[in-house]
Amino acid sequence: MKYIHDFTVTDNIRQNHEFVVLTLKCDSTIPEIVPGQFAEVRVDNASNTFLRRPLSIHDVNYNNNSLKLLIQEVGEGTKKLSNLNKGDSINMVYPLGKGFTKPLNDQKSLLVGGGCGVAPLLFLGRYLVKNNITPRFLIGAKSSKDLIRLDEYRDLGEVMITTEDGSEGVKGFIIHHPVLKTEKPDFNIIYTCGPDGMMRVLSKYAAKHNIDCQVSLENNMACGFGACLCCVTPTQQGHKCTCIDGPVFDSKYLKW
């Protein structure tokens, strides 16, 4: 079931020059949300945006009906949202899309994120912990100043890092990290969200080592709930909507 709810901003914490975390509280009971699902957020009082903006659910607290969004400022919509203050209201259509699939018992998971793609991985990490699976994170960034929310991830499991300039962790891209260099991977599933290029490399890696890989796509969307067919990605079964058949897909299913 999808809902349209008004939330109130209870907190807006700036992470660095381009990321903020918004905490939002709802007067209604928030429905069960699967990690990887997203919200279509209305941007009010912006002169140049028209459509809602899709944003992943970053964290959820069912006890007090609140949730968090991790927002990277890239254009007018995300800038407007990043500048909301305590007490401002925000309207969301949610929870949307198919999230990451239920973990298996013998699962050893690697969660790989880059850019705003780290957003759904925190909520996913918590969910895995609840299912007695210890997540390991591999996070890629341009430079150490772009790494955010590390403490939250470290609370849940090991965090490995690559930076393009080598200012923290291993120098290079995610695929250069030693955890992806071993003969035989010591994990059997990859969950990833981030730049297309990164996810394509990981899906090739997963195919080569015959392990599962779930990727979360960030296609342009107009509606977010399957009504317009604007957000398609080519799959083994033809065009599928990233908003209802995804955003999370088994990488084998995609025609990459």
Binding site: N48, F50, L51, A222, L229, C230, C231, P234, H239
Partner: peptide, 19 residues
């Protein structure tokens, strides 16, 4: 199958589609 992605672009007070 429709047209290839990208099929949508936001414009001032509207949108273009090429579904």
């Amino acid at each position: 199958e429709g047209n290839p992605y990208p099929r949508m672009a936001e414009t001032p007070k509207g949108m273009l589609n090429a579904v």
